[in-house]
């Protein structure tokens, strides 16, 4: 789980943590990627054909979000990216013949070479840590620096020649690739794609990791993701009635998020620098 969470969280960190873009759309990208890959695999029986389909769908919806981020005010992109996610969920739940509706897609086999659980776990960890290294490089690259400059003072950044459109498009596409990788692995771990796995609480988990780990910091967010993934999985083992575990998890997420935000309130949205 840690490897798969790292892929999604670090991708979200690039936009929400580093770019300070009020973007709540990773759920929609996850749905496009997950269902794109596994519906195609169901039809063709081949991962080789289905992976590009998932990637194209995730990239497409990421580009739509990038366009929205360029066109709309910051708070409007937040709300409307949520609206798009709700819309994507409605499509998944109602297009039964393709998505399997509320039952999802079942009997998903693992890729060749990672059929056993230990092999799958090692592959996930390696891919997750590889993605963390890649995100560190992106953060130190021109794209990372441009995103930071745009988040600090967009007009000043534009005046020194930083293209907001180019930076956002590249950042959203990179984040889309990370989310796709995560959603290729996770259904293989469970053996199914299930609509509840794209619920709002997963977005809150991503936010929690980004804020707790220090928004924008790849090492910080990586450590926070590892620790919070352990907490997330640990909740399963609390000896409580099953009807209480779900609500309790929501409340624990809410509490961790508000505490993390209180501690990081100066770093999440820094006050604009002025002369």
């Amino acid at each position: 789980m840690i490897g798969m969470d790292l892929l999604s969280v670090l991708s979200y960190n690039l936009l929400f943590g580093r770019g300070k873009i009020l973007y709540f759309g990773p759920l929609a990208v996850s749905m496009a990627a997950g269902y794109g890959v596994f519906v195609t695999r169901d039809w063709t029986g081949s991962y080789l054909l289905s992976l590009p389909v998932g990637l194209i769908l995730a990239s497409g919806i990421s580009l739509v979000f990038a366009w929205m981020a360029l066109r709309l005010t910051d708070d409007a992109i937040g709300i409307l990216s949520l609206a798009v996610s709700l819309g994507a969920m409605a499509v998944i739940l109602n297009w039964n013949s393709v998505t399997g509706g509320a039952m999802g897609i079942t009997r998903i086999p693992r890729m060749q070479g990672i059929e056993s659980l230990p092999a799958f776990a090692i592959a996930s960890i390696v891919i997750g840590l590889g993605w963390a290294w890649l995100m560190l490089q992106v953060d130190r690259s021109r794209i990372g620096r441009n995103l930071k400059a745009l988040s600090e003072h967009s007009e000043a950044a534009a005046s020194v020649g930083i293209s907001r459109a180019r930076t956002y498009v590249i950042a959203f596409l990179i984040a889309g690739i990370g989310v796709t990788l995560s959603n290729v692995l996770y259904p293989q771990y469970l053996g199914l794609v299930y609509p509840s796995d794209f619920g709002f609480q997963y977005l809150v988990f991503f936010m929690m990791c980004v804020i707790a780990g220090k928004p924008g910091s790849v090492p910080g967010v990586t450590i926070a993701t590892i620790l919070l993934a352990l907490v997330k999985e640990g909740i399963r083992f609390i000896d409580l009635p099953i009807s209480l575990v779900g609500p309790l998890r929501l409340m624990i997420y809410g509490l961790i998020l508000i505490i993390a935000l209180y501690v990081r309130r100066k770093e999440m949205f820094p006050v604009q620098r002025t002369v």
Binding site: V204, I211, L250, G254, R265, F269, V271
Partner: peptide, 20 residues
């Protein structure tokens, strides 16, 4: 501190209220 922070804090509140 920033007008966007309450967006995130109220998401936390929504999780707490959902659980409750």
């Amino acid at each position: 501190r920033h007008r966007f922070l309450p967006i995130v804090t109220t998401i936390a509140l929504s999780m707490l209220l959902d659980g409750l």
